[in-house]
Design a protein around this nucleic acid. Structure first.
Lengths: 377, 377
DNA sequence: TTGAAAGCGCTAACAT
DNA sequence: ATGTTAGCGCTTTCAA
């Protein structure tokens, strides 16, 4: 027996936690048996098991996850790393309701948590916050069996290195052509298809010809893909377009959306028939400002968004948009990780493209039946 | 040097992850130095440090969180355990939007995640799912520096034992009088006060006298506290009440709320002037059904909820309710944990009661100005 | 500033 | 069915 003895104090807060040794000693068995009681109860005779469990209870024994992970090389934990969207506003006041930035990662967290739970994993979530040689990913990577990374949270080089040792799935960011990251599993949503289909709907079903696209100034592969979908539909429909968005805004917020609408609708004669926004936030902002300008949506101008945030359904007119399956994204990530972890370690990298749904509602002139969900009108 | 040598393979997927030994060997230093480079870079001369870092990069070294945690007795992780609210419906279809059951724990997760991040911790979340002698809590407990438990997720006895070794904070469930759990930190919301104040408003400001309370059949201390608040206000206002809710429903869902409204408003002559629901979900359901019955809210009947879910603001008429600071709850939990972890290990147990806010909106006849948030109307 | 060595608490062969 | 014995990969005195 090892010199592992600890004073069995009676005071309430005990400094050192009891270990297998303590439990073993107290119940008169070996540490191996104690371990077995937890890992594989059936391998221990019932009376013995009872004694061990009793001793554990008396001592307040809780197995150390760290020691376990170290010895067994697995943790039962899946991870998620995402950028620190922290937002000055978020500090202040209520922040209770639909904060779009939160929602995005939150939906993914929801999906992952749910799926992880189904597979018996817990979820470790961490937002990148830089610091030292020890980036966040490394911290997470060292503690989980596999993890998902949102978009481009992490230097690809580092990811490349880590992903040699454990499953990593890349979320939402499109796979780069010639990147280091070709061997990662990867899940994205059909940005291109969604925007194309939505645009097609505007052109063909509503007969609109003068569209304006409002994109982002920041480089975002998602937004680019959406824009390309828009272009494709325009060209297919014989609508004349340049190869740049009509406007690029900085933040894709409601405020920017409102401003964009103001700018684009100012030139009265040539006002676009439709404002196609790269996300719902901007579109909602536009709706608001258009109303104030006395322009009716969809009669005077059609507005569309992208994302399918809850708010999009609740504004008036309800927003025609493309719904992204965020929760699914999280679920898919977990499923991929779990698959890798249970055998398929070196299967071919998988790349999933989750389908999106065009949601036709009032802001394009469709969807009378919308908004009829109980309690909301 | 230990027999720790591993073949440096060139194939892409390497089986064993490199360790401090590998890095040490490759950079010609001792493992102690490698460790120092990560834990305390300044204790190592710059050139040495560079060499180590370079070797680490070449090898794809990632420190093992487990080994670290084991050796240093701390993880940098905070935990959250909550009940498995999993919901048959949740499996199906979209589940994208505001699902109240999710929202509840999700808001707390948001709050905790945010606060944890501020303090440099990551968050481990796990929903209880039973299984063997190793309950979820134990699993979480063994992997975090401290954790929060939602309501009565866990047998109190087990919690008692665990909480001797690490900080635990109990969320939302009221502290039992004579429980084992008196030494835990504890955060709840002012259910009693909130419901009392809301009810007082109905009685005194709107002059209502015939109220009906719709509570829950399941035992829930929160709902009980609300009901007691209601009673207190009624009695204070000289309104006659029994000591049981006028109706108790099973699930507190929209459907049940609708049914409750039907039942209570059926008896036409003595229809209540106000339906006071124990949560928003039910109230929203009631709004819907009342509209269909041709009863106008608030003119014919006043409706109120409790929780302050986003939906409450978006229905028409907007719902008068009591807003619970869920995100704050999560933040408070983290703050408490962090405080304990940084010194105050055996300070007196703290019990926080977070204030709630009565939100007066259309459904009680107040709040013309409400709903004016940009983009929502 | 760096190295040597002793654990941290557990799991997993291998014995018995 | 149970015990023995090595580690797992890192941190941390204590020396040098």
């Amino acid at each position: 027996m090892r010199a592992h003895t600890k004073p069995l104090r009676e005071s309430f807060y005990v400094s050192a936690a009891p270990t297998v040794y303590d439990v073993a000693e107290r119940s008169g068995v070996s540490i191996a048996t104690v371990s077995r009681v937890y890992r594989n109860p059936d391998a221990v005779r019932a009376p013995t098991r009872e004694r061990v469990l009793a001793a554990a209870r008396e001592l307040g024994y809780v197995p150390s996850g760290n020691a376990r992970g170290l010895a067994s090389r697995s943790t039962g934990i899946l991870g998620l790393c995402f950028p620190d969207y922290s937002d000055p506003d978020a500090e202040a006041g209520e922040a209770e309701d639909e904060d779009p930035a939160m929602l995005y990662s939150d939906q993914i967290i929801r999906g992952m948590e749910r799926a992880a739970r189904r597979h018996g994993y817990a979820l470790l979530i961490a937002a990148s916050l830089e610091g030292g040689p020890e980036s966040l990913v490394a911290k997470v990577a060292g503690r989980v069996d596999g993890f998902a990374v949102l978009a481009r949270t992490v230097p690809t080089e580092e990811l490349e290195v880590i992903s040699r040792r454990q499953p990593v799935v890349m979320l939402a960011g499109p796979r780069e052509g010639d990147d280091h990251l070709d061997h990662l599993d990867h899940v994205e949503v059909a940005n291109f298809d969604g925007q194309r289909e939505l645009t097609r709907h505007l052109i063909e079903d509503h007969g609109l010809r003068r569209l304006a696209y409002i994109g982002s100034a920041e480089e975002s592969p998602d937004v680019e893909a959406r824009f390309r979908g828009y272009l494709a539909a325009c060209r297919a429909g014989g609508v004349e377009v340049g190869d740049e968005p009509d406007l690029r805004v900085g933040m894709m917020t409601q405020a920017e959306g409102a401003r964009a609408a103001d700018v684009l609708c100012a030139r009265d004669g040539e006002r676009p028939q439709a404002l196609v926004f790269a996300n719902d936030q901007m579109a909602v902002g536009a709706l608001h400002t258009l109303e104030q300008r006395g322009l009716r949506v969809p009669d005077d101008v059609v507005v569309t968004g992208f994302d399918g945030i809850p708010l999009s359904r609740l504004v008036r007119p309800a927003l025609t948009t493309v719904r992204q399956p965020m929760v699914r994204l999280g679920e898919a990530a977990v499923d991929l990780l779990v698959k890798r972890l249970s055998g398929a370690r070196d299967a071919e990298p998988v790349s999933l493209m989750l389908p999106v749904t065009v949601v036709r509602r009032g802001s394009c002139g469709c969807g009378e039946g919308e908004g009829g969900k109980p309690g909301v009108r």
